[in-house]
Design a protein around this nucleic acid. Structure first.
Lengths: 130, 130
DNA sequence: TTTGCTGCAAACAATTTGCAAACCG
DNA sequence: CGGTTTGCAAATTGTTTGCAGCAAA
């Protein structure tokens, strides 16, 4: 765990959104001005393999990252692209995996993602998730 | 609906896997040898907007495509990258969306994806999903 | 004729990689 | 020292785009 790697993890852990690699790079650069893009990418990959960071992908040509703190789902705004956490419901894990098992698969994990708008009136509940 | 667009859709509809753009390009080229990559991408995008094709993305730096035939889930093999369909369970749609609504979101749709291995012994059910 | 679509090639954006120097144990 | 990681820049990959010619309404 080098200084660079630690700072990448610290910065990613300190935010509650789901930044892209270049946003992480900008955050980390405030503390380590000489860090390079390659190092950020390499460390995100390493941290991912260590299970400390999760990579998210939603059809765009870039990934988002989050520091992995337990199971939860995501709501993706199809208008602004923002990603929000949704707490995992008790028993969901087993229920979902059962669906896969019935189809003959034995999953190690699953992802549940919701799509909709958090921006437009009528498309959202207006709870102000902006 | 041009000839090229029709062939892209036909070829994609004719397979039960989830090919990448370059694989679709190869398939289409057997029937339209002069078609270009750009045209394939443009038509995939158009067909997607028409709701006839769905784009899938699983953390890799490329997309997979499927001809959209009703709701279903996916099982992604973390070893070989293959994607398999899993039929949607009755009532799952409402149950899942309810989770999001309780968190204050109003989703239009959702995605349920499973991850595991279809290749390795012990990690799979051995049903031969290769 | 007007509008949209094609093939081609160049452009792009996100990510990965090769390498020599720096670092760590 | 020996192996790992870094910064840098160049390379790679998947995808998009500009443009002139074509096709179809």
């Amino acid at each position: 765990m080098t200084r660079q790697r630690a700072v990448v993890l610290e910065e990613l852990s300190s935010v509650n959104n789901h930044p892209r690699a270049d946003e992480i790079y900008q955050m980390v650069r405030k503390r380590l001005p000489k860090i390079s893009f390659g190092t950020v990418y390499r460390n995100l990959k390493t941290l991912k393999e260590l299970g400390l960071v999760r990579e998210l992908n939603y059809g765009k040509n870039f990934s988002r990252y989050e520091a992995n703190i337990g199971n939860h789902h995501h709501f993706v705004c199809v208008d602004c692209g923002k990603v929000f956490d949704i707490p995992e419901v008790e028993g969901m894990d087993g229920d979902c995996k059962e669906i896969a098992r019935e189809a003959g698969f034995n999953p190690t994990h699953y992802r549940l993602e919701f799509y909709g708008s958090c921006c437009k009136d009528g498309a959202s509940d207006g709870n102000g998730h902006k």
